[in-house]
């Protein structure tokens, strides 16, 4: 194997601080998402609305931050060899926050009727997706400080995403095979299942990018 190159931020600690703040936001919005779904299942709708509002604030702040980072990276011509990669990572991380916000907003607006037999499934699926976000953010932070360790964490992200897919599929099968549910309700429950599962897909997208950038840095 060839020699590992320097960390991405070696020449610019300022952007490192900014990026870390951004990744804090992604991690926190994932936790907000989990608490939001838990609140909804517990029928605590005011708490759900508060969490949905928090997700909205994170999403707006993240968008603003990402745009600032883009102009900062280019106008200050810092880390020119890596800035395209850094921007793509920020954009992919931003997609996670966007999906969380979209999902929370959908809960707040549409208030789907979730029969008790599916409560545990929805909670488990959400927890799995949140875990995949947590791991991919951990991997992203490592990429900026110690790229050689990232691969191990990425394999965890992929495993979690696969599990989330399996859970989503099992939940949908259960929904479409349970008696006494109107087709319109089944479609509604499927919509929410898909949207929760998409959070793990967004985490996987970020993991794919990281995988490539790690190789680029190692060889």
């Amino acid at each position: 194997m060839k020699v590992k190159i320097a960390t991405v931020f070696e020449s610019d600690p300022k952007i490192e601080k900014k990026c870390n703040e951004f990744f804090d936001m992604v991690g926190q919005s994932a936790l907000v998402c989990l608490r939001g779904v838990q609140s909804y299942i517990e029928k605590n709708l005011s708490a759900l609305d508060e969490y949905a509002e928090q997700a909205r604030i994170f999403e707006e702040r993240a968008d603003e931050f990402r745009r600032d980072a883009e102009s900062y990276l280019y106008s200050e011509t810092l880390i020119p060899e890596s800035r395209g990669d850094v921007l793509a990572l920020l954009e992919n991380a931003d997609n996670i926050i966007d999906q969380i916000r979209k999902m929370m907003l959908a809960f707040s607006i549409e208030k789907p009727e979730i029969p008790a037999i599916f409560h545990a499934d929805f909670l488990e699926l959400t927890a799995k997706c949140v875990e995949s976000v947590d791991e991919v953010i951990l991997a992203t932070r490592m990429f900026f400080t110690n790229p050689s360790k990232v691969k191990e964490v990425l394999s965890i992200v992929y495993a979690l995403e696969k599990e989330a897919d399996k859970q989503a599929e099992a939940l949908k099968r259960k929904v479409y095979r349970s008696d006494g549910i109107a087709l319109s309700n089944r479609i509604h429950l499927r919509y929410f299942t898909t949207n929760i599962d998409l959070i793990a897909d967004r985490a996987e997208d970020l993991a794919d990018r990281l995988g490539i950038y790690v190789i680029k840095r190692m060889y």
């Binding site: 995988g211 490539i212 190789i215 680029k216 190692m218 060889y219």
Partner: peptide, 10 residues
Amino acid sequence: RRDIENQLYT
């Protein structure tokens, strides 16, 4: 796909 991507870069 992941193999090809790895090969392209490594």
